[in-house]
């Protein structure tokens, strides 16, 4: 006799629209080796029936790359913010609880709107001017002493895990959060980007800026790209203070 198919139970927090009340539904998915949370959600799409046999609308969520580089699939899995595409079922306690990352506005089910991070990147000028502001000529090389750091921070995929985990990001504060703040550090290291460093540091002063960080270290714990966020937050804090002093003496 064939062995009975092993099932994995998912308890999913759903919500029909931004202003609707959340509710939970449970689904069973056939177990297979290597199964991850995105693959399981895809199985639910193929067979959107709850454990009580109710046919429902398939769960809504977002994913693109399926290899931890795009950031889209961030959700709260068993209480922790992480990427669904690289969360292996074998390494999770069952039943597996999925919920949207409520630091961000929920669009529907597990689908969230992370555009606030994009706005913050605009605030800190998360780019390098190459539009003729000054002459570029041949591209300058990265400083070899800081290239490894720049490489590390450039891995940020704006997933928002760190914002979800940070106790100081939320309705109670304007803090733009660790990811966009640390991006300022990256662009200040850049051989062309550094010319705009004062702009970025000034953008990190005041409301929602770096002083909102309480150094609770949650962000660095959850970053799927292992970016040493708190290390760079500390260095930026020093840079911001230096800039503040400069601002005083230049007046």
């Amino acid at each position: 006799m064939a062995e009975e198919q092993k099932k994995v139970r998912f308890v999913i927090e759903r919500q029909d629209g931004p202003n609707d009340k959340p509710y939970t539904q449970e689904f069973d998915v056939d177990y297979r080796p290597g199964l991850n949370v995105v693959a399981a959600l895809m199985e639910i799409q193929k067979h959107p029936v709850t454990v009580d046999g109710k046919r429902v609308a398939p769960v809504t969520w977002e994913c693109n790359c399926l290899e931890k580089v795009c950031g889209a699939c961030m959700m709260v899995i068993n209480g922790k913010a992480r990427q669904a595409c690289c969360s292996l079922v074998d390494k999770l306690d069952q039943p597996i609880h999925l919920a949207p990352a409520r630091t961000f506005p929920v669009i529907r089910d597990l689908l969230i709107d992370r555009s606030v991070m994009f706005e913050s990147l605009k605030r800190i000028q998360g780019w390098v001017e190459i539009d003729g502001t000054w002459e570029v000529k041949d591209a300058p090389i990265q400083n070899p002493y800081t290239a490894a750091t720049a490489y590390e921070i450039s891995h940020c995929m704006t997933c928002g895990c760190c914002l979800e985990a940070c106790p100081n990001v939320g309705p109670q504060s304007d803090f733009i959060g660790p990811a966009p703040t640390v991006q300022a550090y990256l662009f200040n290291l850049h051989p062309l980007g550094k010319f705009d460093a004062p702009k970025r540091l000034n953008a990190l002063m005041g409301k929602g800026g770096i002083t909102s960080c309480g150094n609770s270290q949650n962000c660095v714990e959850v970053c799927p790209k292992n970016i040493k966020l708190t290390t760079y937050l500390a260095q930026l804090n020093r840079d911001v203070n230096k800039q503040a002093l400069k601002n005083i003496f230049n007046h």
Binding site: D16, G17, Q45, P48, V56, A57, T60, R108, L111
Partner: peptide, 11 residues
């Protein structure tokens, strides 16, 4: 299809 709504209807 199971989802006949107009909001974020991925299906």
């Amino acid at each position: 299809i199971t989802d006949r709504g107009h909001w974020a209807n991925q299906e």
